[in-house]
Simulated assay, not measured.
Amino acid sequence: MDSGVDHLAVPFAGAHDLAARLEPALGTALTAGDPVLAVLADPERDAVSALLGPDASRVDFADPVRVHAVPAFTVAVRWARLARQAVAGRVLVIGQHLQLPDVGVEHWARLDLAIDVAIEGLPITVLCACPDSDPVIGVTHPQLLTADGPRPGPGYRPPPEALVEYPPPPPPHLGPADTDVAFRMADLSAVRRRVAAAAASAGLDDDRADDLVLAVNELATNSVEHGPGAARLQLWATAGSVIAEVADRGRMNVPFPGLVRPSSSGARGRGLWLASELTDVLQVWSDDEGTVVRVRME
């Protein structure tokens, strides 16, 4: 398969139909020795495994519930990271749109749009297995991989244009924070100390604690440098987990925060990119009331 497009929907009518649609791409990847990640429901996983036979052991079958327990943008970031970390070859990711607990239909739309942004220029192909009755797969995929070969997605719109119809869910309420302080530029060293203390109380190892401190420092610095000059830090620490939140009264006009690697010729976007790379989850909410950036480290 060489469509010139790295992200395609694969409409299918049943598990065996999907396996047959995927067989050419899987065969090419496995013959080349490329990494393959498949995130499929049990019937589709079993059909693919049966089709591949012994070669199925060379596919990394991941649990969809675990993969999609994080926000859609985080899933896209993690798949793009697979491609950047690959020693050689081209990564193949097969992901299935499913009904999962606490995962709404907007998750899949946001994931599809984020994939287009996150994987641009990377050695990766993402095939999204979607029921052939899904009326919006053509809107969020540049191409469909049909029985007759690739064809353009009907109604496809560029990610920044389509994203406005799929806003992120509101920030989950976390209850009273363990730390809740206002800060300015002169207070950044105190911000770092507070984050380090929260990481220690949660039992994070030294490397992950250092990464969290660096990530929050980048966010806090961005907030006071490019925002209104004053911001708020909140921290929640539990056994093995820290959530840090930086909020200010400015508005961030970045449709895909943390997904796009900043240009080597400039520093803009570096803070969000680093924070996304250094932590387990990064989420951003921004409107006329202000901007909230939340990261999680476990």
Rank of each mutant, 00 (worst) to 15 (best):
V260L: 12
S263C: 13
I115Q: 08
C130E: 14
L233F: 03
N217E: 12
T74W: 04
Y156A: 01
V117F: 00
A220R: 09
S263Q: 12
M185N: 10
L40Y: 06
V195I: 11
H173Y: 08
V5G: 02
Q234V: 04
L98Q: 15
E120S: 12
G14K: 04
D55E: 12
G14L: 01
P11F: 05
D34T: 01
H141E: 12
L214N: 09
L144N: 01
G175N: 04
R110P: 01
P257Q: 13
A69K: 07
P123C: 06
V48W: 07
S286G: 08
V281Y: 03
D42C: 06
V36D: 03
P167W: 01
A9Y: 01
D211L: 11
F256K: 09
P172S: 11
R78S: 08
L144C: 01
T28K: 15
R110S: 02
L98A: 04
A190G: 12
A275H: 07
D60K: 08
A62K: 08
L37Y: 11
M297W: 04
P123S: 06
W79F: 02
R184I: 06
L212Q: 08
S201C: 06
V65N: 07
S265Q: 13
V254R: 09
L282P: 02
A41S: 15
P135G: 10
F73L: 13
A244H: 06
D63K: 08
A186P: 01
E277Q: 15
M1F: 12
L127H: 00
P255L: 11
A80Y: 03
D63V: 05
R268V: 10
Q234S: 11
E218D: 15
A186D: 14
G240V: 00
A231C: 07
A198K: 10
G155D: 01
P168E: 11
H7A: 03
N222Q: 09
F183K: 09
D180E: 14
V93E: 10
G33S: 02
D34V: 00
F61W: 09
L30Y: 13
A190W: 09
R208E: 11
